[in-house]
């Protein structure tokens, strides 16, 4: 069953995928910070308002994943921002998040050494998003 992109149902499905992943459980050990994903608005893609995804990740477990405002996401310890189209590319495996950050397609705020130390964990989080079947607003 597909869920609408960046909806509360999507957040729950994403959380479930993270908590099913043995790779993330291992790679995320030691991580104890919140992560916010800012999905910037793109009205021409039928994504008229920015949204924020707030992830409470702790020691290889997703304790909570919820969809809120962009401001909610920006208040997290680590923030990754990108347009709706960029995040869609990430979810469709057309853009690797690490490469996206190195190219400036996604913007990172937070302690760089910590993020780099957990590269494997962030790659697996990206993998988890790709496992959630999604309905995209610009394709609906």
């Amino acid at each position: 069953m597909t869920v609408a992109a960046f909806s509360p149902e999507w957040a729950q499905a994403f959380k479930a995928e993270i908590n099913k992943s043995p790779v993330y459980q291992q790679a995320g050990k030691g991580w104890k910070w919140t992560v916010g994903l800012v999905v910037e608005a793109e009205p021409d893609k039928k994504f008229p308002e920015a949204k924020g995804v707030v992830m409470d990740l702790f020691e290889g477990e997703a304790r909570d994943v919820r969809v809120g405002s962009a401001a909610d996401a920006q208040a997290c310890d680590f923030v990754i921002s990108g347009s709706y189209s960029r995040w869609k590319q990430v979810a469709l495996k057309e853009l690797d998040a690490t490469r996206g950050m190195l190219q400036g397609k996604l913007k990172l705020k937070g302690d760089l050494p910590t993020v780099v130390r957990y590269t494997k964990a962030s790659q697996e989080l990206t993998e988890c998003t790709t496992r959630v079947p999604v309905t995209w607003p610009d394709e609906a």
Binding site: M101, L102, Q103, G104, K107, L108, D111, L112, P113, V116
Partner: peptide, 18 residues
């Protein structure tokens, strides 16, 4: 400065400072 340049520079700066 390119995002890659900023990332590498930022990484080394953070390492040296901390």
């Amino acid at each position: 400065a390119s995002p890659f340049a900023q990332m590498l520079g930022g990484l080394i700066e953070a390492n040296v400072v901390s």
